[in-house]
Amino acid sequence: MTSATSDDPSSVSGPGATAPAAGGADVAVRRRRRSLGRALAPVAAMAPFSIYSFLGLGVPILAVIYYAFQSEQGKPTLSNLALVTHGSYLLGFENSIVLALITSIVPGILGLILAYAIATSRSTLLKRLVATASGVLANFGGINLTFMFIATLGSTGILTAWLSAIHLNPWNFGFNLYSFYGVVLVYLYFQVPLMVLVITPALGGLRPSWREAAENMGASSWRYWRYVGIPVLMPSVLGGMLLLFGSGFAAYATAETLTAGTVTLAPIQIGSLLAGNQLAGQENVGYAVGLGMFVVLALTMILYGLVRRRASKWLR
């Protein structure tokens, strides 16, 4: 190539001579630019998400934490925290935790049973139907759910009417839909499907060959579950229940609309404070309740992360 151009005198001083040098510099520049681009690309690519998450999640959380330790006069104080660890605010936390415990353990078990019934069924139609329905119902809550349950088990509800026709009107036996246990009953409606959603992949991860291997080695169905099935599922079930705990603990809309804010739960107290129902000098107490909820949920999720790690190792 070079010899060919040097044979032709007209091109020696022309592009033939300068091209290699210029090309080299060009390549070097481009390479440098590319390596700079390569170094910056991840930052640029992750920037929108990171910034958004920080502004949308980080800043509000920091604000809650910050104002939990601020007095109304803008001075650092622990009085907000002292206030929420006593009296009615403490009761709110206690009730919320009890509610979350009940609505994680009971739907956890029910959801597992339901998911297993569906996972072992052969009907793909049923599986699809339940998957779709669970997806819808798990995110269901608040006002629609409240109305449905009022229409069902309210004092003039349909089920109430059916049951009173056989003299079993639950309201005559001390049942009150607009109470703590009413809230429990209603929460099942989204907690059970949530459990089904969470646990179904884990059930799918139970390989048939484990069961067959166990059977092959002389294990009965019960012993397969005892030694393999349940231990393998345990982390996923616990994980699912922790998720339900979080969801039950944090839920606001359903309890608020069902009871018009009359049950003492931590989220309802926040809502009431935010709506302006606060005593003078206690304007920042809501942030302290928020911080408390945040701490409970953070602990829950740390536990969740731990069990999930084990589950993902086992059920790959």
Binding site: G56, L57, V64, F249, G271, L274, G286, M293
Partner: peptide
């Protein structure tokens, strides 16, 4: 997963303040 950890009620509390 944080938005699941942080209850909407707490989040809106912070958002409205910040």
């Amino acid at each position: 997963i944080l938005p699941i950890v942080i209850p909407p009620i707490v989040l809106i509390l912070g958002v409205l303040r910040a």
